[in-house]
């Protein structure tokens, strides 16, 4: 008896298939925009995320501000975020050793960096690399504060994919969790973090 694998492959090979076609790649690789950071700001905000543009040196102060405004006192964090981000007056829970899921479910929020941000679509990509941690860290808490550095920002989707390593676990985040399932209109806030706050550091 043939295995399912052999049989499916044999069925495909038995068919008079279309001949291979050249793939036209004449679509745009990037787009000309006057100010890529302004575009990122606008497009992330369009998803009802909160966005701030800050000077790199002011990032710690702004982190403290954001957390204070939400009264977030217990915050999870990948173990390798810059030390300056772990501002005083907050109980930091570094994910090393890995935080139990039940504990992650009770924190006030999570602070991470990112790998790449796409201005045109207002998307932040996490690749579990530096300052990002494992995937569940930025998923279970209800509030996600994310620091994007200017050098991580690209204009288009094609540019972003060339920067990413497909073997890593990737999460593309465009605004807070949302749904279009009720009357096909978007409302924010379902299972993922219901508040996304982004600091664009220049």
């Amino acid at each position: 008896m043939f295995s399912a694998r052999d049989e499916i492959l044999a069925r495909i090979r038995a068919v008079n298939r279309p001949s291979p076609v050249p793939i036209p790649r004449d679509y745009e690789r990037t787009r000309t925009v006057p100010d890529v950071l302004a575009l990122l700001d606008e497009r992330v905000a369009d998803y009802k995320a909160i966005v701030h543009r800050v000077a790199e040196a002011e990032v710690p102060d702004r982190i403290a501000d954001c957390l204070a405004r939400r009264s977030a006192s217990t915050v999870a964090v990948p173990a390798d975020v810059p030390a300056s981000w772990r501002v005083p007056a907050v109980t930091w829970l570094p994910d090393s050793p890995p935080l139990p899921l039940a504990e992650l479910d009770t924190v006030d929020g999570v602070l991470t960096g990112c790998a790449v941000a796409i201005a045109e679509t207002g998307t932040i990509v996490l690749d579990a690399g530096e300052a990002q941690g494992r995937r569940m860290l930025s998923l279970v808490p209800d509030y996600h504060l994310c620091v994007v550095r200017a050098g991580q920002v690209v204009t288009s989707v094609p540019e972003a994919l060339t920067r990413l390593e497909p073997g890593r676990p990737l999460t593309f985040i465009s605004g807070p969790s949302a749904t279009s399932d009720i009357e096909l209109d978007r409302v924010e806030g379902v299972h993922g973090p219901r508040t996304l706050e982004v600091l664009i550091a220049t």
Binding site: R43, D46, Y47, P98, I118, E120, T121, G122, T123, A128, R134, R135, M136, P166, G167, R168, P169, L170, T171, F172, I173, S174, G175, P176, S177, A178, S180, R186, G192
Partner: peptide, 21 residues
């Protein structure tokens, strides 16, 4: 599909990743 520039979440994974997922 949802008439958005990008949907809120896209996940990409390859096989299994140690200590993640």
């Amino acid at each position: 599909s949802t008439a958005e520039r990008m949907n809120p979440y896209t996940s990409v994974w390859s096989g299994v990743t140690p200590a993640d997922g």
